[in-house]
């Protein structure tokens, strides 16, 4: 019961925003800005009017949402693993950093939509191409933050590690990574919502998924459906972020306790 009321307290801002949104769009009477009640009705009809056996999800929802989320997570996890490895490596090796820095800076300034033709040429449309697009688009904040985090390790901690004759692996896992963790988490959290964005873009040129649905709605001037997909993406982002924060809190609790008693 207390948990429930805490959740209510935390989400009070949602009905307020919805009410303001509803009133202002009603006042505007613009087809480009339909009121949220109309958007929600469209969403319900399209995606949430299925049978109880499928949790009320329609075939349309089931045929699109799970695929999208799967690809999103695959791309994000891949970019997390690769980005962390690479980021820590260049954070700890100034020489490697000097070699690859211009390439990284160049790569992350390239708009991913402009690289889609290349990914399409290599992988054709499909899950592989979409996962690669997502990974490419979201890996930069992870690399960046991991490198910065690994570079700025407290010298006192490193000194301690040296005194205690830590092996390379121990130094990495017990000193460098824990110290870089807050920054790595900041990068991962950024890349999670970026991954949603990339997912939508990559699906524009496919034949199913949330991005495909958005593109269809845009092309057909179906503005309530278009807003509906935007809301789905937003809600998905909120939920993923909540899950992420939960995981992060666990990881960083360990981190802060580790920090209080170094080594």
């Amino acid at each position: 019961m207390r948990k429930f009321s805490a959740a209510v307290l935390r989400l009070w801002v949602v009905p307020v925003v919805l009410a303001v949104w509803e009133l202002s769009t009603r006042a505007m009477e613009q087809p480009f800005f339909p009121p949220p009640s109309k958007i929600l009705a469209t969403m319900g009809e399209l995606w949430f009017s299925g049978s109880p056996a499928t949790l009320f999800l329609t075939d349309e929802a089931l045929g699109n949402f799970p695929h999208s989320v799967g690809r999103l997570l695959a791309g994000w996890v891949l970019s997390g693993v690769l980005g962390m490895t690479f980021g820590v490596a260049i954070g700890r090796s100034p020489l490697l950093y000097r070699f690859v820095d211009p390439i990284i800076q160049f790569g992350r300034a390239l708009p991913p939509p402009a690289l889609l033709p290349m990914f399409l040429a290599i992988f054709n449309t499909g899950t592989k191409m979409q996962v690669v697009t997502i990974t490419f688009g979201v890996i930069w904040p992870v690399i960046f933050n991991a490198a910065d985090g690994a570079r700025h390790v407290d010298p006192l901690h490193l000194e301690t590690a040296r005194v205690f004759r830590f092996s390379r692996a121990q130094r990495l896992f017990r000193v460098i990574l824990p110290s870089a963790l807050p920054k790595i988490f900041a990068g991962l959290r950024l890349s999670l919502s970026l991954a949603l964005i990339l997912m939508v873009i990559a699906e524009f040129f496919s034949t199913e998924g949330i991005g495909y649905q958005l593109r269809l709605a845009q092309r057909g001037f179906q503005l309530p459906t278009m807003w509906g997909t935007v809301i789905i993406v937003g809600v998905l982002g909120y939920l993923l972020n909540q899950l992420f924060l939960l995981a992060e809190r666990r990881a960083l609790v360990w981190h802060s306790s580790a920090r209080r008693n170094p080594a």
Partner: peptide, 14 residues
Amino acid sequence: VTFKEMPFPQMQGG
């Protein structure tokens, strides 16, 4: 048939 969206300049390579 299945329709797929693609900008014209990419179609030749596609």
